[in-house]
């Protein structure tokens, strides 16, 4: 992606001297206006993020003062008695997103590899289009589908099978209702798959064909060639996964409808759980009292921080991976 403007620049310089002036910092007024405008837009983004953090912090001060660090440790959420603890929500948010990634990453990689490396054009086009269409479905529709189709399917077939095969694990014990952490994770997985697979597809497409030819020329099988392509695309693939993770962490509506909305930490994937975004969406409209509102705002602040930390960890991981495979060079 970043290589494109450079190429264009080269062409323009070749075309005439005026274009050089347009691109140079000392160009005409239009150039100056454009630069100022773009700088303003970029600055505005930073300002919005900063002002959000400031506003969230200011509004959550009553709750921070009242509960302090206990807010992060406490498992009790009882608005009537004025006790607020965020741990079950943090757990639910992270756990449901992890389940989503565990399921969706292999699927997304498979879809992308198939579309780029294996499928003939007349299949790749429509399949790619359908996958991208999934990303355009409103999340409330996913939620309704979750309640009416996915939950009964899980309750009648998948969860009993899991319980009988892996029932000795605490992960698969407890009562089977079709509503719970596992269902929330699966809905999320379906929602992030199109995002991850679309980006991975673009990444794989951007890997130079010469890499494939070189691998094949050295006697690699198709699978070995694909591995070379994957290694080349690793940073981009990781970026795609981070993008999907961000979507999963913040998703509200669909998860709310199938996760069971219960502020508890349970080892079982069948038990109901609760995410931060769901809690805010559920309770904000009817929240009366300053402390209650403030606690909800602090939940928002925590979601912000969780997203930050998770993204940070993901980037460090990516950095580690790219450093190890660094010699191969980047895709795109």
């Amino acid at each position: 992606m970043s290589a494109v403007p450079e190429n264009e620049g080269m062409n323009f310089v070749g075309q005439g001297s005026t274009w050089r002036r347009v691109l140079s910092p000392t160009g005409n007024t239009g150039d100056a206006v454009f630069r100022v405008l773009m700088f303003g837009v970029a600055l505005l983004m930073v300002a919005i993020v900063v002002s959000m953090v400031v506003a969230l912090t200011v509004d959550s001060m009553p709750s921070i003062r009242q509960f302090g660090f206990n807010f992060l440790k406490s498992q009790r959420w009882d608005p009537i008695k004025g006790e607020f603890g965020a741990l079950p929500f943090i757990y639910g948010t992270v756990a449901s997103s992890l389940i989503a990634l565990l399921i969706s990453v292999p699927f997304s990689l498979g879809i992308a590899i198939f579309l780029v490396e294996q499928a003939p054009h007349y299949i790749a086009r429509p399949v790619g289009f359908l996958v991208e269409l999934l990303a355009a479905i409103p999340s409330v529709v996913y939620g309704l589908w979750g309640i009416f189709v996915l939950a009964p399917f899980l309750r009648n077939y998948i969860e009993p099978a899991l319980a009988s095969a892996f029932g000795w694990l605490p992960l698969f014990q407890g009562s089977i209702t079709g509503i719970g952490l596992l269902t929330g994770g699966i809905i999320l997985a379906i929602m992030v798959t199109p995002i991850i697979s679309a980006v991975v597809r673009d990444v794989l497409t951007a890997v130079p064909g010469s890499q494939r030819e070189a691998a094949l020329a050295l006697g690699a099988t198709k699978w070995e060639m694909i591995r070379v392509v994957l290694v080349n695309g690793a940073p981009g693939i990781a970026g795609a996964v981070i993008l999907g993770l961000g979507r999963a962490l913040g998703e509200t509506m669909a998860v709310t409808m199938v996760i069971g909305n219960r502020a508890q930490i349970s080892l079982s994937l069948f038990d109901p759980s609760y995410t931060i975004a769901s809690a805010i969406a559920n309770e904000f409209t009817e929240a009366t009292g300053d402390l209650y509102l403030s606690a909800l705002v602090e939940l928002g602040l925590i979601l912000f921080l969780v997203t930050f930390v998770v993204n940070g960890i993901a980037r460090v991981l990516v950095w580690n991976v790219t450093r190890k495979t660094g010699g191969v060079g980047r895709a795109a």
Binding site: R76, I80, T177, M257, G260, N261, A281, E283, E286, A287
Partner: peptide, 13 residues
């Protein structure tokens, strides 16, 4: 209250 801490059950929106 409007958002009680329910002793048991699943929550629907």
């Amino acid at each position: 209250g409007t958002s009680p801490s329910w002793p048991v059950g699943l929550g629907g929106k």
